[in-house]
Write a protein that binds this DNA or RNA. Structure first.
Lengths: 146, 146
DNA sequence: TATTTTTGTATCGCATACGATATAATCATA
DNA sequence: TATGATTATATCGTATGCGATACAAAAATA
């Protein structure tokens, strides 16, 4: 039997997986200048929009578990990027907020999305294609994130 | 400043990253029955199509580095799924081939892609949408995998 | 109010990913 | 043919991801 459905080129899963790693790799040199990793950058995107946030709030927005986020936030605390303060109203909660340095990184990061999307647009991607791609992936995420 | 370009909802990178993890999560129960992980499944997809293959050939097809693939293949060897045989023509090369058990897993895996794509199609995705999504991601991969 | 359940965070173990580097084998070339 | 460059694989260190589990605080309920 040929098992067409098992061939790598017929999978949707593999392009998503490969694209994710390649995008991370593309961000890496920009983020290295800021001294952060890609998942740390995602945490910062969330906090730059709205802070302080409980550990769980960040985990929900990034669709990550707390056992991933907790040590990641501790490293960011060690690096002086965020502060971790236990809630007084509910002592189970830990609120995460930006340090001055964490706020400062926002200015430095502002040019990154533009430079990267410019890189894609100068090659064969149109704005409309990129929007559609993003929307389709978001639809997929909503289906899978039950 | 509002820094619109830094908002999570305006990023392409995040949906790709989140979709990748959610797809892996979706595969997990099926692969657990076979006793393999998602990256190991990708290695098997490649080997089921064509074997034996050198470590580098597998790494190239999956766009992974040998420092990821080498220990992964060793675990698969320990589990009796693949064999690792050093080439006699070129002693730097190690050829990877399937054991009988590795071949056997192909039959068991055959139903997985169908069940998962059925799950997507019963929700709002059409075949055409899935094809377009795959093609756009492949275009993205070709741009980034220089 | 005492007990059970739920919630929020953290810890542990294992398997990726990947940059940096090591090492042996092969190739290229002076 | 000796030697420097390249190639194929492997090792090391660090940072994720995530299932399983722990634990204390808060909520629910008997």
């Amino acid at each position: 039997m040929s098992y067409e459905q098992l061939k790598l080129k017929n999978q949707l899963c593999f392009p998503v997986y490969a694209a994710s790693r390649l995008i991370t790799r593309e961000y890496q040199p920009y983020l290295a200048e800021l001294g952060i990793t890609y998942p740390q950058y995602l945490v910062l995107l969330v906090l730059w929009e709205n802070q302080p946030l409980a550990v769980n709030d960040i985990a929900d927005k990034l669709i990550l578990n707390t056992n991933t986020i907790t040590p990641l936030l501790k490293r960011m605390e060690t690096d002086g990027i965020v502060k971790r303060i236990r809630s007084e109203q509910d002592e189970r909660k830990v609120f995460i907020s930006l340090t001055d340095y964490g706020e400062l990184l926002k200015k430095k990061a502002a040019k990154i999305p533009e430079e990267l999307s410019a890189k894609l647009m100068q090659d064969s991607f149109t704005t409309s294609e990129l929007t559609t791609l993003k929307e389709q992936l978001e639809k997929l995420i909503n289906l899978l994130n039950h």
